[in-house]
Design a protein around this nucleic acid. Structure first.
Lengths: 179, 179
DNA sequence: TCCCAATACTTGAACTCTCAAACTCCCTGC
DNA sequence: GCAGGGAGTTTGAGAGTTCAAGTATTGGGA
């Protein structure tokens, strides 16, 4: 199956024989599993919270927030995709769904006929305003209320570093930013 | 839409009016967004890595690992679900898929006729052995090689704390462990 | 012994995500 | 001007997830 890695960059990882693999130490294992465990529970928790209270998954909520912060409450599809770290394809489907809800509207870009703007509607802004408090509270309860200021700061730095290493990269077909 | 929160526990969060909401500070925002950003990129990265090299998503790989570590390479469905932090329903679908691949096999539980064991097959163990080195390397490169020992330790503690707060709880219909 | 709520797991439908293949339009070189 | 490669976005199909509902079996009490 994976005898033919597709990118030179990862050929190394995919082909490395078990004999010379540097496995995770017990400590690393413990840390990694804690991360997997917690990030999973957290994402599930927030997804359910928003699905219940706002009628959309966490990521869709993030899209509305992205638009709300943009000048004119509008963003080109590609910009929104980059800002939200998702593929254009995924965004297309997502916006189609949000459009059905009446929370977002598409508009043609006057200067580039290929382009589309995603625009937050009043109804969209209203949902956001109505559900943001509950969401912030959920995040606060799940994360910030449990961590010391030092831990919060450390978390920020750590995740910043991790994200850096996974960033854009010039490769990737449909994913100029997602390798 | 969400004028009628379904659980008393979260009614508070859902109903809280914007006027008295404690929003995130700028620092908290920054930290939270770093977390969202990084966890998203990381999960995407590992999902693609495993899809490419092992032909299955990250979580399915985790299921095989769970079975490989269990005595007799087998676990009751519910136990595996708990260990993996997913719902039984999701596990049912997942095991069905892994069964088609020949990597897992179901066995009836002799002592409880309702029960089912998920058993890792030799083929399953083989895939795991063949792809584990690449996966570990990917995790190492994305996370451990970029963090200092102190940061690694901090990450472990932080995620431990977050997970604790989201843990089991007695509520929840199909989710004795996922609230 | 019989009843029945609880437990273990599965199923089906609706929804979301991924990947590859389209489409339309822009831009540069000839 | 007019290919032709590239950019911006969409589409469709296949795979995975969720939620609610369904089946089978168990463990206690009446």
């Amino acid at each position: 199956m994976n005898t033919a890695p597709t990118s030179a960059e990862e050929a190394d990882a995919a082909a490395k024989p078990a004999g010379q693999t540097r496995w995770l130490t017990d400590d690393e294992q413990r840390i990694w599993r804690s991360y997997l465990h917690a990030s999973m529970l957290l994402e599930d928790h927030l997804d359910r919270q928003l699905q219940r209270d706002a009628g959309m998954p966490h990521i869709y909520y993030g899209l509305l927030v992205g638009l709300a912060e943009a000048p004119g409450r509008r963003l080109r599809m590609t910009e929104l995709a980059m800002k939200s770290k998702i593929t254009r394809s995924r965004l297309s489907h997502a916006i189609a769904r949000l459009e059905k809800n009446g929370w977002v509207r598409r508009e043609d870009c006057p200067s580039d006929k290929r382009g589309q703007f995603a625009v937050l509607t009043d109804a969209g802004a209203e949902v956001l305003g109505r559900t943001a408090p509950g969401h912030v509270t959920a995040v606060r309860q799940a994360v910030f209320e449990r961590l010391t200021p030092q831990q919060q700061e450390a978390l920020g730095e750590i995740m910043e570093i991790v994200a850096e290493g996974l960033q854009p990269s010039d490769a990737g077909a449909d994913l100029p930013w997602l390798r």
